[in-house]
Write a protein that binds this DNA or RNA. Structure first.
Length: 426
RNA sequence: GGAGGGAUGGCCGAGCGGCUUAAGGCGGCGGUCUUGAAAACCGCUUCUCCCGAAAGGAGACGGGGGUUCGAAUCCCUCUCCCUCCGCCA
């Protein structure tokens, strides 16, 4: 959410910035409602001021034992009038609020201008492009042949976009989770948290999933609970409605959670394999910091996420999303895309974003400075470190052997009980 | 699921219809004193919105609604916490 006063005073700038995103909100009606609201406030408050004053007089008259019937009657009418105006005012405020809640964040000036993913800018490529002496297979063939991914039974249990992991497949997923958690917690200074996997509406609104993207979420029937689409939601909201002190910042959190997404509107996309599932595992990194360090913190967060692939020795690239591809709440985003030889393309495996004060304003996460009056809003950031299912895909496809087996990357072997290779069971 | 008790400022804690401008304490900040510190004493300690050059005004005692000229205080409702009983991993 943007600051109301900022929107009011920078309406032209805002229009320009939203055009970069490919968004065209009608900001004229916003200006009108805002003006109506302020007029109403002035009327209501003048009446309230009058009522407060006269009520005091009534009190004094009554203490003397005199009657104040005419004043009481007069104020009865004033109160009625106030009530009427308050109803009006509330309506305007709700209108204005729902307006503010659907205005996306403003892209940072370092974000490349562009229409869609084609205009994203490659920042760097890392690691070696693997060479194969045979035709590399996609992970669904590898996984099925090894008996570690069972798509048929996954679909039987829950439907399309669900998969049953078996044997060393399940073990590999668990190994990846633990490997990532240990790396970020022991070496990158993050605090481990394990949050609820479902949250209420306020929390979903705090990080920006609601009200705009309700159709992407799984909702618990009969209750106002939603399954989280990412750990970003519960973890960022840990400090909802709190004022943090400057010395506590920056805060680094790391959480493993499953994530649940409806994937509405992606019919026919990534239908094979485990690239796009309704339920997938993710290790998430979340940071809270002061505004002046936040862009440096974004670079650090990105490096922390990249380190997972460096340790696994898998080829990847980093791209900066362009203005047209940027998510609703983000001011800037880097995607990490991993090389998948079975499909001959790079695939998103992490998204690292800074939200500046956009989420903090919605969620009420403030900051108090030593010796300074008042509060300001913190900056929030998050990034996948990494999407676990897609990392498993990358391991299978990059470490596959001609005989159909998959070598376990060295960094994962301690987490796999020393197993060096996943082979077909006889 | 049943029966009770709670929710007040950074924290503890009074207040139960109008001198509440939210007492008092703790913590924090500033000052006096001191070589320095402690103690003592004095003062200051929230956020949001509106208007404005300044002054000013309005709102917030868990959330929402109601009664009243006037609500932290009375009524309704929701949420959360605590105690006891039942059920349960």
């Amino acid at each position: 959410m943007l600051d109301l006063r900022f929107v009011r005073e920078n309406i032209d700038l805002l229009k320009k910035k939203l055009t970069l995103r490919g968004d065209d909100l009608d900001l004229n009606s916003f200006i009108q409602v805002d003006q109506e609201r302020r007029d109403l406030i002035q009327n209501v408050e003048a009446l309230r001021s009058q009522r407060n004053q006269v009520s005091d007089e009534i009190s004094k008259i009554k203490q003397k034992g005199d009657a104040a019937e005419d004043l009481v009657a007069q104020m009865r009418e004033v109160s009625q009038e106030i009530k009427k105006l308050e109803i009006d005012l509330k309506e305007k405020e709700e209108k204005l609020q729902s307006f503010l809640l659907v205005i996306p964040n403003i892209p940072h000036e370092s974000v490349p201008v562009g229409k869609n993913e084609v205009d994203n800018k490659e920042v760097r490529k890392c690691g070696q492009l693997p060479a194969f002496s045979f035709e590399p297979k996609p992970h669904w063939d590898i996984g099925e042949a090894l008996g570690i991914l069972d798509f048929k039974r996954g679909a039987k249990l829950a439907g399309a976009r669900f998969t049953l992991y078996k044997d060393l497949g399940a073990r590999l997923e668990r190994a990846l989770i633990n490997f990532m958690l240990d790396l970020h917690i022991n070496e990158h200074g993050y605090q481990e948290v394990l949050p609820p996997f479902m949250v209420n509406r306020d929390v979903m609104t705090g990080t920006g999933q609601l009200p705009k993207f309700e159709e992407d979420l799984f909702k618990i029937e009969g209750l106002d609970y939603f399954l989280i689409p990412t750990a970003e939601v519960p973890v960022t909201n840990i400090h909802r409605d709190e004022t943090l002190s400057e010395q506590d910042l920056p805060l680094y959190y790391c959480a493993y959670t499953p994530c649940f997404r409806k994937e509405a509107g992606s019919y026919g996309k990534d239908t094979r394999g485990i690239i796009r599932q309704h339920q997938f595992n993710k290790v998430e990194l979340v940071k809270f910091c002061v505004p002046e360090t936040s862009y440096a913190e974004l670079e650090g967060l990105l490096r922390d996420a990249e380190e997972v692939l460096r340790r696994l020795d898998i080829h990847y690239r980093v791209v900066a999303l362009c203005t047209g591809d940027l998510g609703f709440a983000a001011s800037k985003t880097y995607d990490i895309e991993v090389w998948l030889p079975g499909q001959g393309e790079f695939k998103e495996i992490s998204s690292c974003s800074i939200y500046e004060t956009f989420q903090a304003r919605r969620a009420g996460i403030r900051l108090r400075r030593e010796g300074k009056k008042g509060t300001e809003l913190v900056h929030t950031l998050n990034g996948s470190g990494l999407a676990v299912g897609r990392t498993l895909v990358a391991v299978l496809e990059n470490y596959q052997q001609e005989d159909g087996s998959v070598v376990v990357p060295k960094a994962l072997r301690p987490y796999m009980g020393g197993i060096e290779k996943i082979e077909r069971k006889r």
